[in-house]
């Protein structure tokens, strides 16, 4: 057990925390972080290393062969097929992120600013959707958006349309709509954390000094909640890039995203190419996370 120096009553939490991670001499205790490192290695680094290894190996005749090759990466760049699908995936994910933020920010703002008793209940209702399977919810959306679905049937019964609306399902619109629905709770939780901590007296001060509501929002509220906005964006963007079943179920067959292609490679046991595609995406995601981290990391 580590000997911790006696802490005076009222000593700041930061000092207490610093003391608990050091031995009596003030040096860091290396083994204290071993469990965390072991978990990281087992759950993150090892699978990634295996994937990296496979991406430089050959898949032949339903077997992975330990022959070093760059062919899997060359295949990615050999034709426009994969870069184009990747670009399309990034672009669609960007749109999904933007739409999610546009929906989630005002919603969360309203909850934090104008509700008190019902705040937790409303947030709870948003989280409630996690209680059922994602696949089930995607199928439910198919029943809503499909040609024989609630919307089309309802509009036809009201005499507003003659035939089903062609863009409602099997379209990029459907992918963006359903993915926004899936990302919405993540974004709300991330934004709620930021908005709840906000110092609203600063907004009041801006108003008192004559700032318009829009100016106060842009110069006071938004900068203070930027970590939440960045967290929400990252969570949404990363989820959208890797989403597999939503584009397959409701998206257009002519605008497929990258995850179903990787899945197809894996199912056909093209592990090398599948791993190379996955690793390229992982690099992109990690770059995005690293860039976002600069904004999320609290500055002392």
């Amino acid at each position: 057990m580590t000997d911790t120096p006696n802490l005076r009553r009222g000593e700041p939490d930061e000092a207490r925390h610093r003391a608990s991670s050091r031995d009596g001499t003030g040096n860091p205790v290396p083994w204290a972080i071993l469990p965390s490192v072991a978990l990281q290695l087992a759950l993150f680094a090892a699978p990634l290393a295996i994937m990296l290894l496979y991406s430089f190996w050959t898949s032949r005749n339903y077997q992975i062969v330990a022959e070093w090759t760059l062919d899997n990466y060359k295949t990615f760049f050999a034709s426009w097929t994969y870069p184009w699908v990747l670009f399309r995936t990034l672009w669609t994910s960007f749109i999904i992120t933007a739409v999610t933020l546009l929906a989630a920010y005002p919603f969360t703002y309203f909850i934090v600013r104008y509700t008190s008793r019902w705040q937790k209940v409303l947030i709870g209702l948003v989280i409630l959707s996690f209680w059922t399977s994602g696949l089930l919810r995607a199928y439910a959306w198919m029943a809503i958006l499909g040609n024989g679905g609630i919307i089309n049937k309802g509009l036809q019964m009201l005499g507003l349309i003659d035939g089903p609306l062609p863009f409602l399902i099997y379209s990029t619109f459907a992918t963006v709509l359903v993915m926004t629905y899936f990302s919405f709770p993540f974004a709300v939780i991330a934004l709620y954390t930021s908005l709840e901590r906000m110092d609203w007296t600063l907004v009041q001060a801006a108003n008192d000094l004559g700032a318009s509501p829009a100016r106060a929002f842009l110069h006071v509220t938004l900068p203070q909640t930027m970590p939440g906005v960045i967290s929400a964006s990252v969570l949404t963007f990363v989820t959208a890039i890797g989403m597999f079943f939503v584009p397959l179920l409701v998206g257009s067959s002519s605008s497929i995203m990258i995850a179903p292609l990787i899945s197809n490679q894996m199912q056909a046991f093209q592990l090398g190419l599948g791993a190379a595609l996955s690793f390229i995406i992982a690099l992109i995601v990690m770059t995005i996370l690293a860039a976002a981290w600069r904004y999320v990391e609290p500055k002392h």
């Binding site: 032949r60 005749n61 295949t75 097929t81 605008s255 497929i256 197809n264 490679q265 046991f269």
Partner: peptide, 16 residues
Amino acid sequence: NPDEYAAAWNEVLAAT
């Protein structure tokens, strides 16, 4: 030649 068939199917999926 399963590898070529898998790649060809991927191109079918990816086509616009």
